[in-house]
């Protein structure tokens, strides 16, 4: 996977599998400290200590259709390649948090990529889940909250073409704006 947003999409599928109805995705870019951090928090059913110790093993999976589970291991590898780390914490019945830290300017740190495409797919999941996306760039902050969007939409589905385009544009431009604002 050549974009971090693809990893984010992949990790969030675990949250959906864990029956989460709220996923919080927070990106923190701190240029001075050379940090790029991704935090994904869900309110799913969580994992036991034993499961938690096994998830980054590529040969661990809860699924029955195949014998390997690469999602978390690949994400961990992506972080370690960029001189960072990936930590998981989880409490049964409360939820799970995945935190990955990268060196911002590391050559092997993959770009975030089209995060708006990943969020769009998460929104279209059958089980309706709320997404709170927060992107911090130094002192600037951009927030996208599906609950806020839903309030405005008032029953109009997320599958409406203009709604899809609005969401994508809002996220893409929102992130660009905070980056430009900061570099002024």
């Amino acid at each position: 996977m050549n974009e971090l947003s693809l990893h984010i999409l992949d990790i969030c599928q675990n949250s959906i599998k864990a029956n989460a109805d709220l996923i919080e995705i927070t990106i923190t870019e701190n240029i001075d400290k050379n940090i790029f951090m991704i935090e994904i928090t869900d309110n799913g059913h969580g994992m036991s200590k034993l499961t938690l110790s096994e998830v980054s093993d590529p040969f661990f999976t809860t699924r029955t259709t195949r014998k390997v589970g690469l999602g978390v291991s690949l994400f961990k590898m992506a972080a370690e390649m960029a001189n960072g780390s990936c930590v998981l914490s989880s409490i049964v019945d409360i939820g799970t948090k995945v935190t990955a830290i990268f060196e911002h300017n590391h050559l092997d740190r993959a770009p975030l990529g089209a995060i708006e495409d990943s969020i769009n797919i998460l929104i279209l999941n059958e089980r309706e889940i709320e997404i709170l996306y927060t992107h911090k760039y130094n002192n600037q902050i951009y927030i996208f909250d599906t609950r806020e969007v839903k309030k405005v939409l008032d029953g109009i589905p997320f599958t409406d073409y203009n709604v899809i385009m609005w969401i994508k544009n809002n996220i893409k431009e929102g992130i660009k704006m905070i980056q430009e604002e900061e570099s002024r």
Binding site: V149, I156, D160, N162, N170
Partner: peptide, 8 residues
């Protein structure tokens, strides 16, 4: 977005 909603 509100305009889109009203149109829809």
């Amino acid at each position: 977005l509100k305009k889109i909603r009203d149109a829809a």
